[in-house]
Design a protein around this nucleic acid. Structure first.
Lengths: 232, 232
DNA sequence: ATCTGTAATATGTATGCACATAATATCTCT
DNA sequence: AGAGATATTATGTGCATACATATTACAGAT
């Protein structure tokens, strides 16, 4: 070994370099931790930390006894920042504001009912709002809240704070699902966002439960051109 | 302590339970590692492992000397599986196939040029293909490849294997960017996917570099209704 | 030949210890 | 009071060691 690699980051870098250099090709079994530790001149703990990190990042696949091999598909996952709209807007140096468009009890559409596992006659609170950046439409929010699970929500003054802000602060969820998709702008959404009806909108849907009880379903629709980005 | 929590998972579970129970509310500083280790009846290393895990998952924020506090926003990130189309299709039990629609040298549009940091006159290889699941359109792929960075690509028989499969196997990248968005179907894409022109398509764009050299830009467009999902 | 129990082995985890590092708090000098 | 040096402190990391656990490989039984 030319130089002892004694920090787990250095070890991880070296292993990643070998993968990129194809010293170790996808699918290959790489040396075991003890051997690597010997080669690198550090403790097995350090190698373990490095390899665990690379496995979490998706570069390696590890199985007890079988060993560690280079992942066949270098990147099969990405972590993306889920926008917290107010922060997102303010991070751009813009002034955040939101406007309540609708707030009434009603029967949610089938798609929402089935996602939340609700009976057909169950009534929820329907909230529609528009998020603004410097006065311009930033995102359109369509939300259904189960006021049986979250009774305090009914009394909330939504002109003061956004539904999302209140919910994340006050109702910890135990399970959630996220779906990214696209939708054609319906007339109401188009008007709110100031785009043409039928325009292609990027959407982000989130459903949350507290144990088995549904809390809320929310869909954010962004104006045409909006992109959610991340590094790989 | 009722019961010594001696595995990092148990410690993590306990800490998460306290956060959910609001013993520790968002923004609160939680006890330091030494104290927690004392309370839980385990080594500081174990607590460290647990807290590090929760911080990576986004539940905690940690700063040296300042301490560890409960994240203000429980989930601000999600890891999502990036589809490897062939696998995705076959995982559904469908037969995968792909069809080459176009393959010719040309000047990429401005958006692609600027993403890849290329001069205006630079010519790239343009490849358009359709991914099929049981013969039905599954995703439309629009790709530009820099054949100066990847000379071997020019000689590739794209009817045999997909551009993506070859690239991930043969050209390790050092940097990549991912963007999720929506677009209105242009006539060619609409025809390939069998949807109406102007329909809202969910798109996934990936750009990759090898050091400072651009490798490829690719955009996958999915038929209306397609959703990319993940748990929170 | 197939099934089954057992040994071998690579990774996974827990611990005590030491020292590194970042960031805040405090003290000192002007 | 303000600037800058210094102490303090919580997390970050490395190491040696021991034991746990999942899986494979192999040997022996049927």
């Amino acid at each position: 070994m030319a130089q002892a690699l004694t920090s787990w980051r250095a070890v991880a870098d070296e292993v990643l370099a070998r993968i990129r250099r194809r010293d170790w090709a996808p699918g290959d079994l790489i040396p075991n931790e003890v051997d690597l530790a010997g080669e690198m001149g550090c403790a097995r703990t350090t190698v373990n930390r490095a390899l665990r990190h690379l496995a979490e990042a998706g570069y390696l696949e590890r199985r007890r006894k079988a060993g560690t091999c280079v992942a066949l598909n270098p990147v099969r996952r990405a972590t993306l920042r889920i926008p917290v709209i107010r922060e997102e807007v303010e991070a751009r140096g813009a002034h955040y504001d939101h406007a309540l468009i609708l707030r009434e009890e009603g029967t949610p559409p089938l798609a929402v009912r089935s996602l939340l596992h609700l009976p057909p006659d169950r009534r929820l609170l329907h909230v529609v709002a528009l998020h603004l950046a410097d006065g311009a439409p930033y995102a359109h929010e369509d939300r259904w809240v189960d006021t049986e699970t979250v009774p305090d929500f009914a009394a909330l003054d939504l002109s003061q704070q956004s539904a999302n802000a209140w919910l994340v602060q006050n109702v910890p969820y135990t399970r959630g699902a996220l779906a990214l998709s696209a939708m054609a702008a319906d007339p109401e959404t188009a008007e709110a966002l100031g785009c043409a009806p039928g325009a292609a909108l990027f959407t982000l849907e989130r459903t949350t439960w507290k144990a088995a009880l549904p809390i809320t379903w929310v869909r954010l629709a962004y104006p045409p051109g909006h992109r959610l980005t991340t590094d790989l």
